[in-house]
Amino acid sequence: MRSLPRASVVFVLVSAPLWAMSSCATNAIANPADEAIFPIGSKNLLPNAVVDMPMSASPLEIDKMTFFNEDLSVAVGAPPAEAITQPIAFPHSLHVKDLGMDCQYCHSSARKEVHAGVPPTQLCMGCHSLIASDGKDGNPDRPELEKLKAFWADGKGDPIRWVKVHDLPDYVYFSHKRHVLGGVQCQECHGQVQEMGVAQRVASLQMGWCLDCHAQHSLDDSYGTQQELRRSELKDCWTCHK
C-alpha cells in the first residue's frame, strides 16, 4: 500500500503534460485531406553527404535540371572522394594542349552568359564526323569516340549525362560573363585544365575562396575612381545570392 501514493505521483506527473498537450488547440496538423494536396516538405536531418539528387531519364526530370528545390543548406563540399569519371573520358589535354583549341571554342557562352555551357553533341560531331573511330583504315581504335557517335546517333541520340565537376549550390549565381570579360583566366578557378584528361575540380569553390580572390585582384583600370565602388559592389551578397 505504501507504493500507492508514489505511483499516483508518477501517474499525475506523466499524464498531466500529456493531457495538457492533447487538450491544447490541436491546430498544428492540417486537415488530412488537404495534406495530400498541399504536401509539406520535411527537413532531411541527415548529413549533407547523404543527400544526392536522384535523376531519372524521363524528359520531365531532365528538364528539371535540379535547379530547384535544392536545400539551401547544401553547401559546396569537398570534391567527390574518387576522381570523377565521365560517360566519355574526354581528354582536355589533347584538345587544349595538343590541338591548341581555345576553351571558348566549346564553352562558347562563357563570355556571353552566366553559364559557360557544355557544348551540344552537334559541336563535337562538327569535327568528329570526319575522324574515324573504329580502328579501320589504319587509324587507331578510339573507343571513346565510338561512344560519342552512339550519343549522336545522327542527331537523334540521348543527351550525354556529364557529371558536373564544378558544381555550385543552387543559391549561388556565378556569372562567367563578367569574369571572362573582366579578363580572369579560366585556369584561375578551373585549374590547369589543359593538363587534365577528364577535368577534375581543384579549387574549393567555397565562399571564402571567392572572397580571397576578390580581395587580391586589382580591379580593372577602366573603373578608375570607381574602383572602391566596384569593390563594395562585389561585397554585396546579392551579387551572388538572390
Binding site: V10, V14, P17, L18, K43, L45
Partner: peptide, 28 residues
C-alpha cells in the same frame, strides 16, 4: 519515481521538438 517521470516527460515532449525540426515551425 519522480526522476523517471521527469525523464519520460522530457522524452515525450522532446519528440515535439524533433517533430518541429523535421516539419518546420509551422507546426507551432
Amino acid at each position: 519515481g519522480v526522476l523517471g517521470a521527469t525523464l519520460t516527460v522530457l522524452v515525450v515532449t522532446g519528440l515535439c521538438w524533433l517533430y518541429q525540426m523535421v516539419y518546420g515551425l509551422g507546426v507551432a
